[in-house]
Simulated scan of single mutants.
Amino acid sequence: MSREKDGGTDAPEGRPRGGLSARDLAVLALERQSWPGPGAKERAVRERLGITPTRYYQLLNVLLDDPRALAHDPVTVNRLRRLREERRERR
């Protein structure tokens, strides 16, 4: 994958300098929504993002550790971080 320099840091192609990609923003937007029942969210992931739910959750977990995602949507990111930590503690 090619990279471009941005003030001394590498930024992957398709990602605005210093910001989140359109896909990252779409993932966070899906997480802000509430879902009526099982399967609705997974269906939305496939239709809106064109990726599998497994890939979606992989991307989401990376986003939860990204300070840019926290700056963009602190309420959603902090809520999801708490849920992730609770699941880890139960294991």
Score class of each variant (00 low, 15 high):
residue 3 R to N: 11
residue 80 L to M: 07
residue 32 R to V: 06
residue 80 L to G: 00
residue 66 D to C: 04
residue 77 V to W: 01
residue 63 L to M: 07
residue 18 G to P: 03
residue 58 Q to T: 15
residue 86 E to G: 13
residue 11 A to Y: 12
residue 62 V to T: 14
residue 50 G to N: 03
residue 89 E to Y: 13
residue 41 K to T: 01
residue 40 A to R: 13
residue 62 V to L: 13
residue 1 M to P: 15
residue 7 G to P: 09
residue 76 T to N: 06
residue 45 V to A: 04
residue 23 R to P: 08
residue 21 S to A: 08
residue 62 V to P: 02
residue 35 W to I: 04
residue 32 R to H: 11
residue 37 G to E: 14
residue 35 W to D: 03
residue 18 G to Y: 02
residue 40 A to L: 09
residue 24 D to F: 01
residue 2 S to H: 10
residue 86 E to Q: 14
residue 35 W to F: 07
residue 21 S to P: 04
residue 43 R to A: 14
residue 84 R to I: 08
residue 8 G to Y: 06
residue 26 A to N: 04
residue 32 R to S: 10
residue 40 A to Y: 11
residue 37 G to I: 08
residue 84 R to S: 09
residue 74 P to R: 04
residue 88 R to P: 07
residue 26 A to Q: 05
residue 67 P to F: 06
residue 8 G to K: 09
residue 5 K to S: 15
residue 21 S to M: 06
residue 50 G to T: 00
residue 26 A to H: 01
residue 2 S to C: 10
residue 66 D to S: 04
residue 29 A to Q: 10
residue 29 A to H: 06
residue 15 R to V: 07
residue 17 R to C: 12
residue 65 D to S: 05
residue 12 P to L: 09
residue 30 L to G: 00
residue 69 A to R: 03
residue 48 R to W: 10
residue 20 L to C: 06
residue 45 V to G: 02
